[in-house]
Design a protein around this nucleic acid. Structure first.
Length: 333
DNA sequence: CAAGGAAA
DNA sequence: TTTCCTTGG
């Protein structure tokens, strides 16, 4: 779910014009897939599915959005999670419980004809399971796009790659990537700028957050930003009731982090969490190279296997191939 | 969410 | 043309 730092970051978000977005984008795949699964649904919450009943919402999302990325000069790299740290197990269990409760509420809302509720509960019942991950990976690779296997958290790996300069920015809706030290975070990276909110469509701009701006303006270090996050709660520790980002900022700057943790969370040692954000497991074994798109294989995967309409798929494939040829030609001169 | 067609 | 609404799988 990420971290509740919004209240102290609002001042440093800047709308990102398309030019600033050109380059290598390190995408937190789980985050993107969850987004697609929750939003790409029918009004009663039913996701897109093929004839066999397999969910295809995420494939639609990846295919069309990624095609747009390429046409805009955005070169996506999809980072997949590895082994989560033990500290995350409580959060993982909580998410599972919420999903299961939501599923029950979704069915109930559907029975009662409550479409708004149905859609909302359907969203929060979304599950990124092994099938979602493997089918997403298949499509990404057929599109010629790089996949990176993070040893642990994908957000940590994305931040690492952006820090090294192998990616120009990290893409996620969550702010955790900043804690992991990404120099630049981009949120709301969509093309149409449309997102559904309470079932309604609203326009949202892609926004860029520059870590150094945040730290300079708040006059804190990254360690201190992590301390604020720890006080409000992260995926790796419960927060303290009554402390939000603003109070957290104040307490951390006045040097009260340790004493508050001792008082309010006596059984909790913040050091492992701090250390995980500062020095997470990452790998150098990756490539950000883009390969040729396999249009025939994509047609077969999306249309033959998953019931997509060739009328919708073909024009997109053509557009990507055309762009690809342009690039190849340019590189000769 | 993104595409495509309808409506304005 | 631009915006709105529905469909997609």
């Amino acid at each position: 779910m990420g971290v509740a730092l919004r209240n102290i970051l609002t001042d440093f978000k800047q709308p990102a014009d398309p030019d600033k977005l050109k380059g290598v984008a390190a995408i937190d795949s789980y985050n993107a897939l969850y987004q697609f699964l929750s939003i790409i649904r029918q009004p009663d919450g039913t996701p897109l599915m093929d004839e066999e009943g397999r969910i295809t919402s995420h494939l639609s999302g990846i295919f069309f959005r990624t095609a747009n990325f390429l046409s805009q000069g955005i070169r996506p790299v999809f980072i997949f999670d590895g082994q989560p740290p033990d500290m995350k197990s409580k959060t993982i269990q909580e998410r599972k419980d919420i999903r299961e409760e939501s599923k029950v509420k979704w069915d109930k809302a559907k029975r009662e004809g409550d479409l708004t509720g149905a859609f909302r509960y359907a969203m929060s019942s979304s599950v990124v399971d092994a099938y979602i991950l493997s089918s997403a990976r298949t499509l990404i690779q057929l599109m010629g796009l790089p996949v990176v296997d993070a040893p642990s958290e994908a957000e940590a790996q994305a931040a690492y790659m952006a820090g090294k300069g192998d990616a120009d920015y990290a893409v996620s809706q969550d702010y955790d990537t900043l804690l992991f030290g990404t120099p630049v975070l981009v949120r709301n990276l969509t093309i149409s700028g449309k997102r559904r909110f309470h079932g309604r469509q609203v326009t949202v701009q892609p926004e860029r957050v520059i870590l150094s701006d945040v730290l300079t303006n708040l006059e804190i270090t990254r360690e201190q930003l992590i301390e604020i996050a720890i006080l409000t709660g992260t995926d790796f520790n419960p927060g303290i009731r009554g402390i939000g980002a603003k109070t957290g900022l104040k307490k951390v700057k006045s040097g009260d982090f340790e004493s508050i943790v001792r008082e309010k969370l006596p059984d909790f040692d913040p050091e492992p969490v701090k250390d995980f954000f500062m020095n997470p497991p990452v790998t150098d074994s990756y490539s950000t190279e883009i390969n040729r798109i396999d249009s025939d294989a994509i047609r077969s995967f999306l249309c033959d296997k998953h019931g997509f309409s060739p009328d919708r798929v073909d024009p997109v494939l053509e557009k990507i191939s055309k762009k690809e040829k342009q690039k190849t030609l340019e590189s000769w001169f």
